[in-house]
Amino acid sequence: MISSTPVLRQIDAPWHDEGPYATALRTGRGPLFLRRADGWLLPLDVERWCAEPDAADRTVLARCGRGPVLDIGCGPGRLVAELAALGRPALGIDVSPAAVARTLGSGGSALCRSVFDPLPREGSWGTALLMDGNIGIGGDPAALLTRTASLLTSHGTIIAEAATADVDECVNVQMTNAASYLPGTGFPWARVGVSALRTYADLCGLSTTETWASGDRTFVQMERRS
């Protein structure tokens, strides 16, 4: 049996229970940013994350094929809860205890776990989701896609949300609710547009099967090659 207790390295992470990420999830609102040391800010859409699935989310849910769905970095769990309401087996994982608590409270199933930790049902997930910029987890898209592919069944699919800009970068950022930056508290994060994401998919043994846009969001669906 795998414990759902977060490992020690997660306790001091930027999303710990006393940090701005957890506060934003508990209140359901921002402001919340990823901030680079040079002052560049990426606004995080907390209000959308904490709302019901929107039209763009539903294009993703409609493409979750047969088999159980794993939502990597599930946040407050809107997609996991919606899949549960539809009678679909789904599990969210997130390194934030506040995110897991909110997901459970909304009717979804979730574990406080990193995608790089041991996970239930490895090799048998039908679909894995990397929404809301989560292709950036760890700052290494190739490592993330390789690990995610290993969790899937043969010909399982990954649906990832791409950056709207044509970008491929790994930067050191800080989670913040203000314009201040505290040296030494950053973590690596990647931003990947559609072209770069398709390239990473090919390098990781994945076939890109569909790319689509809904509103101002863009998604790429990849399939694990046998």
Rank of each mutant, 00 (worst) to 15 (best):
I2F: 15
S3C: 10
Q10Y: 02
P14E: 08
E18D: 13
P20S: 15
Y21C: 08
L32N: 02
F33L: 13
R35Q: 08
L42Y: 08
T59W: 14
G65D: 07
I72T: 05
E82K: 03
A85G: 13
L86D: 06
G92C: 03
I93A: 09
D94T: 04
A98S: 13
A99S: 14
S109D: 05
C112F: 08
P118N: 10
L119C: 12
R121T: 00
S124K: 12
T127E: 00
L129I: 04
M131S: 03
G133N: 01
G133D: 00
N134W: 09
I135A: 12
G138F: 09
D140G: 09
D140A: 14
A142C: 01
L145H: 01
A149V: 02
S150V: 13
S154P: 02
E161W: 05
A162F: 07
A163V: 02
T164N: 06
V167H: 08
D168A: 03
C170V: 13
C170D: 08
C170T: 15
N172L: 15
P183C: 09
F187N: 02
G193M: 07
A196L: 15
L206I: 05
T208C: 08
T211S: 06
T211W: 11
S214P: 11
G215M: 09
R224T: 06
R224E: 06
R225G: 05
R225S: 07
S226G: 11
